[in-house]
Amino acid sequence: MRIAVDAMGGDHAPEEIIKGTLIAAEKNPDVQLILVGQKERILPFFTGAKPKNISLYEATEVIAMDEHPANAVRKKKDSSIVVATRLVKLGEADAVVSAGSTGAQMASALLGLGRIKGIERPAIATVLPTPEGGKLILDVGANMDATPEQLSQYALMGNIYAEKILRIPNPRIGLLNVGSEEGKGNDLTQKAYGLLKGAPLNFIGNVEGRDVPYGRADVVVCEGFVGNILLKTAEGLAGVLFQQIKEKITSNMVRKLGALAVKPGLKEIAQMMDYAEYGGAPLLGVNGISIICHGSSNAKAILNAIRVAQECMKIQLIEQIREDLPK
């Protein structure tokens, strides 16, 4: 297996990206890891001998988070994400991992790898931590709008990912809507409901926003506009709650003493809700494995994203999607 890692992408690049890659190299000696980026910024982080299963591939340009994705990808042909994706296209790598601009990664994948035949638009799949384990939401931002047919395609791809990667048998597929009853929602969700009901899936019907954190559905399907708002609202709410809990249980000496008793439990909850545990998720629907990581990914998240890339290759994710699409 050969995995191209965008060393320049992310809020903590290149340091945390390199740290995560080094840990992955040690844990997986048979996997070849290709760090793509500016060598003069990468090399200082190798204090000792470079592991034999890590190589460097020069890319002189970097796409910033605030640049227009499609324009940047077209203009910066030698940017780290474009070069890393090109390695997959040329067969010199089997997957690409990046914590950089999501839009740039999507544009690179669409322009460089193309779509799987039968998939109209790719979807960004994100794992959301819940008390029942990680659940999949898609799309969370690849496309602001979608057709009923595209939502049905998202569900088929999400089903494969949940079953093969998240190891959820017979995943429950839910359609995000304003009510649980059939017939609720707008024209898009009403038409999508009919398609999903007739699809070879374990479709459980509509799920509301409040159902998502409880893990009522294993795969939640929605258009990117709604999915992105749902994801960022969940992230913000979790951050505020943990901040408030920390402030309130340490506000005086009596509460601090009580906090010692609940600290182990709080640590377990924090670990369960940590996005770094899941690392990243693939851009489903493109003709190659492209793993998208959180922009603030640390070494642990990169390590787990590389693990996800390996798992996608092992199960031949692209081939699985092709086989399961309606002929």
Rank of each mutant, 00 (worst) to 15 (best):
V221N: 04
I315C: 12
C293M: 04
A142T: 02
S79D: 05
A259Y: 03
A299R: 05
Y193H: 13
T47L: 14
C312Y: 02
V96P: 13
P51A: 01
A25L: 04
V83L: 14
I306D: 02
A99P: 01
G9Y: 05
A261I: 14
E26N: 10
G183I: 07
S79Y: 03
A155V: 00
Y57F: 14
K191Y: 13
A70W: 11
A125Q: 08
V31N: 11
S98F: 01
G174H: 09
G10M: 02
D218Y: 05
G185L: 02
A162Q: 03
A99V: 01
N170A: 10
D145W: 03
T147V: 06
M8P: 00
C312S: 07
Y193V: 04
G118Y: 05
V31C: 11
V207H: 15
L196G: 06
Y161L: 13
S296V: 10
V82H: 12
A64Y: 12
Q243G: 15
Q105A: 12
A64C: 08
I306N: 02
G227Y: 01
K52Y: 10
I291G: 00
I124E: 05
I291Y: 00
L317K: 02
A107F: 08
N159C: 06
R172A: 08
Q271M: 09
T47D: 10
K76N: 12
L151W: 03
N202S: 12
T21H: 03
G114C: 05
R167H: 14
L43I: 15
K263W: 09
I291T: 01
N304T: 13
V5Q: 08
A13Y: 00
L241D: 09
Q316Y: 10
D324C: 13
D66L: 10
T147L: 10
L90F: 07
K19S: 10
L266V: 03
R255L: 11
V240N: 08
V36G: 02
N186T: 13
F242A: 12
V308H: 07
L230Q: 07
Y154Q: 01
A59H: 01
A13C: 05
E208I: 01
A25G: 04
I63M: 04
F203Q: 00
N228A: 04
V240T: 11
A70I: 15
E247S: 12
I116S: 03
E40D: 15
L283V: 06
C312I: 02
A162E: 02
V5W: 05
D94P: 08
P122H: 04
L230D: 05
M144V: 11
I321R: 10
K117P: 01
S55F: 07
K135V: 07
K191Q: 15
P171K: 14
A238H: 14
G10R: 00
K197L: 15
L138R: 00
L231I: 08
S290L: 10
D139C: 07
C312H: 04
L283I: 10
G239C: 04
Q32A: 06
V127E: 08
E40P: 06
L237Q: 14
V212P: 00
I168F: 00
A125K: 05
A238E: 12
L151Q: 07
E223G: 07
S80T: 12
V127M: 11
